Amino acid sequence: NVLKSKIFMPMAHPIPGGGVLLPGMFQEDPEIGLVNGVVVAAKEAFSDTSSYPGAKPRPDVGVSVDRDLISADASLAPGESQDFPLVGIRVTDLPDDSTQAAPAPAASDGQITGTVWLDFVPGGGGVNGQIDPGEAGLPGVRVDVVGPDGVAGSAITEADGTYVVEGLDPGEYRVALPAANFTTGASGVPWLSSTFITAVVILSYVWIWAGFAMVMIASGLSAMDRTLQEAARVDGATEWKVFTRITVPLLAPVLVVVFVTLIINVLKIFDLVYVIPPGNAKPAANVIAVEMWTVSFGGGNNQGLGSALAILLLVMVLPFMWINVRRFKAEREG
């Protein structure tokens, strides 16, 4: 019942169904738009790092930043530690699983350890570059250990900000926090912009008229003589041949009704194109009916051009109306 209401509600109420519900679904803010909420959730689900936009290292602690890449100034050997005291992050933006920052465990052979934390105590106090009570670790930060041949190992920080990179061969390494840790994070797609608005209007139209097409085709299928299909199967016909040679020809009158009706409605579509696109995207989604109304009554004050567009629209619709009239006459005579 829920699925049926989702499908048939827009057909019964096209303006609230397609003009209000769908624009809300496609809002760019993932907190509002359902589609972007799903897109952002999917991106975050497949990402193993957290995003801390605006983070930067505490000055004069042996850590520098270059194009959002934060790295240690000095090279390290396995068995040493490298901490990353960061600032520029709001306490309210910290993940829910963030806990009190802790010193990293002592590194053994083949390991480099350290802590990535927010070097800030709410209310003030503490020593710059040192882990103080009240300072939070930054979980989910990717830490790369880079050698002469590239990334030799990596790790993700724990809830207290600590990390351990293992399996390192003897040598000199640089420890870095990739720029992916500090990007803005997953954001919504501007579906209602001029780039995507045509696709959104098409989707709205398909959704609104899907119920009509389903009802018509289902009624045609229910009235079909099944014995013809069963006889064809008995004679060895494949399901594809049964569909193309029997089902489709028997359903052809219904398919013509659906096709012609949808073509006529596409040509004279007005409501969806008028209510879905925001102001800056309306020119990209413009159609004849909307242009006719705009130039006549929507501020253009050019009834002559509007009348010409109305005649053009009528001429485009007339052939399909003629097809419908002929079909109705043939059914009556038959």
Score class of each variant (00 low, 15 high):
residue 75 S to D: 13
residue 76 L to D: 02
residue 77 A to Y: 00
residue 79 G to A: 12
residue 79 G to T: 09
residue 79 G to H: 12
residue 80 E to I: 08
residue 81 S to Y: 08
residue 81 S to T: 13
residue 83 D to E: 06
residue 83 D to V: 02
residue 83 D to G: 03
residue 85 P to T: 12
residue 85 P to M: 11
residue 86 L to N: 00
residue 89 I to P: 05
residue 89 I to E: 09
residue 90 R to E: 14
residue 91 V to D: 14
residue 92 T to F: 06
residue 92 T to A: 14
residue 93 D to L: 07
residue 93 D to A: 13
residue 94 L to F: 10
residue 94 L to H: 12
residue 95 P to M: 08
residue 96 D to V: 14
residue 96 D to Q: 14
residue 97 D to L: 09
residue 97 D to W: 09
residue 99 T to L: 14
residue 99 T to I: 11
residue 100 Q to C: 04
residue 100 Q to F: 03
residue 101 A to I: 02
residue 102 A to W: 02
residue 104 A to M: 04
residue 105 P to R: 10
residue 105 P to Q: 10
residue 106 A to P: 03
residue 107 A to L: 12
residue 108 S to V: 14
residue 109 D to G: 11
residue 109 D to L: 09
residue 110 G to C: 08
residue 110 G to N: 11
residue 111 Q to I: 06
residue 113 T to F: 04
residue 114 G to C: 05
residue 117 W to A: 00
residue 118 L to M: 09
residue 120 F to N: 12
residue 121 V to R: 07
residue 125 G to A: 03
residue 126 G to M: 02
residue 128 N to G: 10
residue 129 G to T: 07
residue 129 G to K: 02
residue 131 I to D: 02
residue 133 P to Y: 04
residue 133 P to V: 01
residue 135 E to D: 03
residue 138 L to V: 06
residue 139 P to T: 01
residue 139 P to V: 01
residue 139 P to M: 00
residue 142 R to P: 00
residue 143 V to W: 00
residue 144 D to C: 01
residue 144 D to M: 04
residue 147 G to V: 03
residue 147 G to T: 05
residue 147 G to A: 06
residue 148 P to N: 05
residue 152 A to Q: 01
residue 153 G to S: 03
residue 154 S to I: 03
residue 154 S to R: 10
residue 155 A to I: 03
residue 156 I to H: 01
residue 156 I to M: 02
residue 159 A to V: 07
residue 160 D to I: 02
residue 162 T to C: 12
residue 162 T to A: 15
residue 164 V to L: 12
residue 165 V to Y: 03
residue 167 G to M: 10
residue 167 G to V: 14
residue 167 G to C: 13
residue 168 L to E: 07
residue 168 L to I: 11
residue 169 D to Y: 05
residue 169 D to A: 15
residue 169 D to N: 13
residue 175 V to R: 11
residue 176 A to S: 15
residue 176 A to N: 07
residue 178 P to Q: 09
residue 180 A to C: 07
residue 180 A to R: 15
residue 180 A to K: 15
residue 181 N to H: 06
residue 183 T to W: 07
residue 187 S to M: 13
residue 189 V to M: 08
residue 190 P to R: 12
residue 191 W to Q: 11
residue 192 L to A: 14
residue 192 L to D: 04
residue 193 S to R: 10
residue 194 S to W: 09
residue 195 T to Q: 15
residue 196 F to A: 10
residue 197 I to Q: 06
residue 197 I to H: 13
residue 198 T to Y: 10
residue 198 T to G: 10
residue 199 A to G: 15
residue 202 I to Y: 13
residue 202 I to C: 04
residue 204 S to M: 12
